[in-house]
């Protein structure tokens, strides 16, 4: 099932990777390099899923989550953190900030699309032991 995915990422190489992978699986990709740009796009266009980095210039991922999840309409768009924060305790912090899911960087391209699709299909709401997908696989 293809859909429209907004990717918020400030590192151009990593943005290229995510975009390439999603497009290869027929998704329409919208991109933003920072939070305010992303919120503008989400308010203006149809977006089925948002993939968001945590460390971003000016407005970080936590603040983006706060704003999106505080918005009456945008809060319904599944919001997934894809982040290099993968140390002990980071996953809980990300989920506590309002993200619907957490995928650690480096991503595993072979399973990335499958991970994304679970959020697009809303499976994360009742899947898993605590309702969220698990983080770093180590």
């Amino acid at each position: 099932m293809a859909g429209r995915i907004l990717v918020i990422e400030d590192n151009p190489t990593n943005l290229e990777l995510t975009t390439y992978l999603l497009k290869a699986f027929n998704y329409t990709v919208l991109t933003a390099a920072d939070g305010s740009q992303a919120i503008n796009i989400a308010g203006r266009e149809r977006v089925d899923l948002i993939i968001c980095d945590i460390h971003l210039p000016r407005m970080d991922g936590y603040e983006i989550a706060r704003r999106l999840k505080g918005h009456s309409v945008l809060r319904r768009i599944p919001l997934v953190a894809v982040t290099a924060l993968a140390m002990v305790g980071d996953r809980e912090k990300v989920l506590a900030a309002g993200f619907d899911g957490y995928i650690s960087k480096p991503i595993t391209p072979e399973i990335f699309i499958k991970q994304i699709e679970e959020f697009l299909n809303g499976e994360y709401r009742d899947g898993g032991s605590n309702g969220v997908k698990q983080g770093r696989e180590d």
């Binding site: 990593n14 990777l17 290099a84 960087k105 480096p106 595993t108």
Partner: peptide
């Protein structure tokens, strides 16, 4: 954690 950022592109593009 920035140490991990370049690995995202290396592992990712090798994967694609």
């Amino acid at each position: 954690h920035e140490l991990r950022t370049p690995l995202n592109a290396i592992i990712g593009f090798a994967g694609t």
